[in-house]
Nucleic acid binder design. Structure first.
Length: 272
DNA sequence: CCAGACGTTGTT
DNA sequence: GTCTGG
DNA sequence: CCAGACGTTGTT
DNA sequence: GTCTGG
């Protein structure tokens, strides 16, 4: 599951990257350990030009109490084996829990990285998973809804992150789901109310592993009350060789190495 | 009909 | 709110 | 968030 | 009382 992630980019950086404006009086601190119940920035299909805060952990509007659902399978009940080559219909449109939101209340969840552990060890052996070439923040496909607490009248806007089958990188860290990551043009399509169900379905697939990498971090991340920068310091080398994409789409293989030296090497590549 | 479930990841 | 199972 | 577990030795 | 999982 994708129940932890990082969003530490400033409001300014998000505004520039996604060509949006923060909602009035929006304030949030860098969070290197976003967990269920936290407020985090999203952009909604209702208001695709605005950064808003919402609570991580989805509750549909009809629920009698909060549900805190973190993820929604894009294939729904299809592909129960989590096969990476699944290419059929996206069953999320059929699920009572999600059908209204996937049609009318889509959002993108802004992240700099996400955190995932092996199926067995889970967060006892966590990895930070990120996009290479400093591509951050990026957008994860999500759904949201507004839930009213009948006893207090309080309204909570909450969201869940859509998941897809694993790519080669996820297999390497022994996890069999991953969040749906959208590139910039797909974000616009995903948040556009006029995009058809079929077109939305086509966007919900696993991101190219060659554009990603991951490294081990400390299991300190398990503590939901900690969220400082040091939590995502690498404790091992990245798990795969990096394919560094230049602007002209030529691929260069960049060798393994600890983060500092790897970034140094990337810098050298960029400089010629 | 109508009470009860509706979800995830990973299995009790 | 909408679907399922008994 | 909040319900449920929180342990051992020895394994299903 | 505190941690974990969903």
């Amino acid at each position: 599951m994708c129940g932890r992630y990082v969003i530490a980019s400033t409001v300014k950086v998000i505004e520039k990257k996604f060509k949006v404006k923060a909602a009035p009086e929006l304030v949030f601190e860098p969070n290197y350990n976003v967990t269920v119940g936290n407020q985090a920035p999203i952009i909604t299909s209702e208001n695709p030009n605005e950064i808003q805060l919402a609570e991580f952990g989805f509750t549909p509007d009809w629920a009698d109490k909060k549900k805190y659902i973190l993820n929604a399978r894009s294939e729904g009940d299809h592909n129960p084996e989590n096969r990476s080559d699944y290419s059929g219909a996206k069953g999320i449109f059929l699920k009572p829990y999600f059908k209204k939101s996937i049609r009318f209340k889509r959002c993108v969840v802004l992240a700099d990285a996400f955190i995932e552990g092996p199926t067995k060890e889970k967060l006892n052996q966590p990895y930070l998973v990120y996009l290479i070439n400093k591509k951050r923040p990026f957008a994860m496909a999500g759904i949201y809804d507004d839930w009213i607490d009948k006893s207090t009248g309080e309204i909570t806007r909450s969201f869940a992150i859509l998941t897809s089958p694993p790519n080669e990188l996820m297999n390497k860290i022994h996890h069999h789901r991953m969040p749906v990551i959208l590139n910039d043009t797909d974000v616009d399509l995903y948040l556009n109310k006029t995009t058809t169900q079929h077109e939305i379905g086509d966007l919900l697939c696993s991101y190219d592993y060659k554009l990603m990498n991951a490294y081990r971090i400390s299991p300190e991340i398990k503590r939901p009350n900690l969220n400082e920068k040091e939590l995502i310091n690498p404790i091992e080398e990245p798990v795969q060789k990096e394919y560094y994409f230049e602007k002209k789409q030529t691929i260069k293989l960049v060798g393994m190495g600890m983060t500092s030296s790897r970034e140094q090497r990337l810098k050298e590549e960029e400089e010629g």
